[in-house]
Design a protein around this nucleic acid. Sequence first.
DNA 1: GCCAACGTTGGC
DNA 2: GCCAACGTTGGC
Length: 159
Amino acid sequence: MNYWLMKSEPDAFSIDDLKQRKHQTEHWDGVRNYQVRNLLRDQIKKGDLALFYHSSCKVPAAVGIVTISSDGYPDHTALDPESKYFDPKSTPEQPRWYMVDVTYLESFANPVTLQAMKQRPELLNSDFALLKRGSRLSIMPVSKHQWDTILSMATAKQV
DNA sequence: GCCAACGTTGGC
DNA sequence: GCCAACGTTGGC
């Protein structure tokens, strides 16, 4: 079982949007980056957990947890000419893009801001992809230790 | 809105 | 296969 971090722009899809669809699976589709595609296809598995992270917003932060509720499977939006994610180079026989399903698990009482993470040496010095310069992947791995650290920050009393 | 750090595209 | 031009991401 592995841990991940998934970015979403809250203006487009926030943790509250997800929360309202509690117990329903959401398709995490539209990924059009090969590195992330490989994660979706090969490494992210049903039962894994992921931090839900708000990016491109006023206070970038990990705001909750989602459960990965399916293994990776072909992203059908790539085959749909009506979709904004349509990719003519993807075919049913040779799907180019993959997706997973996620379900809402919880929202953090105290969102863990990017700024707060940067102040934690055990995150800063642990090869955490989110804190690496120029890291723009929309999904990235989180180690068990990084995961535990972030969760402890999410539940700790704010100072 | 700016801009650094990428990834992608396409001419050669 | 190289690389310049262009597009995108995302923090600030």
